[in-house]
């Protein structure tokens, strides 16, 4: 019968969007990935940002934080490729150094979400019962805030700054990881090798570690990549509101927030930090889409 799935099941499958892993060899996945031009573009953009951030001191002689009011509000020129801001700081240099914040925040935040969310989700899905119900109710509550509001609340309580923004953005996406891992555990639980392990008397935790965790790795990596983009958006959004990384640090969202006052006569000051955020998030999204297609050809069209 072609009955549609129930709304609940739909919701579940959409929220987890768990890519199915097929048995194709690594080399074929690599080919799929390499054949995906969009993903390659994402990788190149990301590499450029990484290089700019890591080698910023070698690539520019400009000081990202030193003020020089005499040089304020200069439009792009040969000396200042992207112009200077309201305090006379070179925007290009600030963007290069700012990439360190952005990339680190994204990476660390998603690591936090993965380390906390995945085990919770796996336990929830694998054990079921009361444990599952409790974890899912808590997840529901967290989901009803959405990542940005959740992070906003956390910085409201614990204060702004790089550290709390990173933690806040990470916590903001934890529920998504719980849902993903739970879906994975639910499906892997039914697999023959897990049933065999149960039959051999392995303990639930051992099974989780040995079988379930390992087999859900690929979709979790895909999901993590896609969520790095999201956490970057959240962190920069907090910066834009003045609740993120604090000035004079050249975090892109914070730069954008500062530039907001000058959009009437110096619109380039807000153009480039925003473009940097956009491109960085785009690179992770393209990369994540490409990885997903490589991991799960059935999702490709």
């Amino acid at each position: 019968m072609n009955q549609p799935p129930s709304p609940d099941a739909m919701l579940e499958s959409l929220q987890t969007a768990a890519p199915r892993v097929d048995g194709s060899p690594f080399s074929s996945r690599l080919r799929t990935f390499a054949g995906n031009k969009a993903a390659l573009v994402g990788l190149v953009i990301l590499l450029i940002f990484v290089i700019l951030a890591v080698f910023a001191p070698l690539l520019t002689s400009q000081d990202p934080t030193g003020q020089n009011l005499a040089a304020a509000f200069q439009p792009p020129s040969a000396k200042h490729w992207l112009g200077t801001d309201d305090l006379g700081r070179d925007i290009l240099a600030r963007i290069m150094y700012g990439g360190r914040y952005t990339l680190l925040i994204g990476l660390v935040a998603v690591s936090i979400a993965t380390i906390i969310g995945v085990p919770l989700g796996l336990i929830s899905g694998y054990l079921g019962g009361v444990t599952d119900t409790i974890i899912q109710r808590i997840t529901d509550i967290m989901l009803s805030f959405n990542p940005f509001l959740l992070a906003l609340m956390l910085v409201a309580v614990f204060g702004a700054g790089a550290k709390s923004v990173t933690i806040a953005a990470g916590i903001g996406v934890i529920p998504q990881f719980i849902r993903l891992a739970r879906g994975q555990a639910l499906s892997i639980r039914e697999e023959v090798y897990v049933e065999a392990a149960v039959a051999f008397g392995e303990k639930p935790m051992a099974i989780l570690r040995r079988h379930v965790m390992r087999n859900s790795l690929a979709p979790i990596i895909v999901y993590a990549t896609l969520n790095i983009g999201l956490t970057i958006l959240v962190a920069a959004g907090l910066g834009f509101l003045g609740l993120g990384v604090q000035p004079p640090a050249p975090e892109w969202g914070t730069m954008l927030g500062e530039a907001r006052s000058y959009i009437f006569h110096a619109s380039y000051q807000m153009t480039f930090p925003g473009l940097a955020i956009f491109l960085a998030v785009l690179s992770f999204n393209l990369l994540g889409d490409g990885l997903r297609d490589a991991v799960d050809p059935s999702l490709r069209d």
């Binding site: 969009a38 983009g229 958006l233 920069a236 959004g237 834009f240 969202g253 954008l256 907001r260 959009i263 009437f264 619109s267 807000m270 153009t271 930090p273 925003g274 473009l275 955020i277 956009f278 998030v281 785009l282 999204n285 393209l286 889409d289």
Partner: peptide
């Protein structure tokens, strides 16, 4: 589609203001 999910709304908003309002 992929640009839309990567777009910081605050930046898009300012861009639109600069172009259409200013």
């Amino acid at each position: 589609g992929v640009a839309g999910v990567s777009m910081p709304v605050y930046w898009l908003g300012i861009l639109l203001i600069v172009v259409f309002a200013v």
